[in-house]
Computed example of a mutant assay.
Amino acid sequence: MNIKFIKLQQFLSCICLALFIHIAHADEATPLASDPALEQRLVSISEEMRCLVCQNESLSGSRSELAQDLRREIRDLIKQGKTDAEIRTFMVDRYGDFILYRPPVKPTTWLLWIGPFVLMFAGIVALLMYLRRRNTQVATTSLSDDENKRIDALLRDDK
Rank of each mutant, 00 (worst) to 15 (best):
F5S: 11
F5A: 14
F5I: 13
Q10R: 13
Q10T: 08
C14G: 06
C14V: 06
C16P: 00
L17E: 05
F20N: 13
I21G: 06
I21M: 09
H22S: 15
H22C: 11
H25Y: 10
H25W: 04
D27W: 00
T30D: 15
T30M: 13
L38W: 06
E39W: 14
V43P: 07
S44I: 05
I45F: 06
S46F: 04
E47P: 07
E48C: 11
E48P: 01
E48V: 11
R50A: 10
C51L: 08
L52H: 03
Q55M: 13
E57Q: 08
S58Y: 06
L59Q: 05
S60M: 05
S60D: 10
R63F: 10
R63C: 08
S64D: 06
E65Y: 07
E65T: 15
L66N: 03
R71W: 02
R75F: 10
R75D: 05
R75W: 11
I78C: 08
D84Q: 12
F90E: 10
M91N: 02
M91R: 04
R94Q: 14
D97Y: 12
L100C: 08
L100R: 07
Y101D: 03
P104Y: 05
K106F: 04
K106V: 09
P107Q: 03
T109E: 03
T109A: 05
T109N: 02
W110R: 01
L112R: 10
L112F: 05
G115W: 02
G115C: 00
G115R: 00
G115H: 01
P116K: 00
F117Y: 07
F117Q: 02
M120E: 03
F121S: 05
I124P: 00
V125T: 05
Y130V: 02
R133E: 01
R133F: 03
Q137S: 15
Q137I: 06
V138F: 03
V138N: 04
T140S: 07
T141K: 15
T141G: 01
D145Y: 00
D145R: 03
E147K: 15
D152E: 13
A153G: 14
A153Y: 10
D157G: 12
K159C: 15
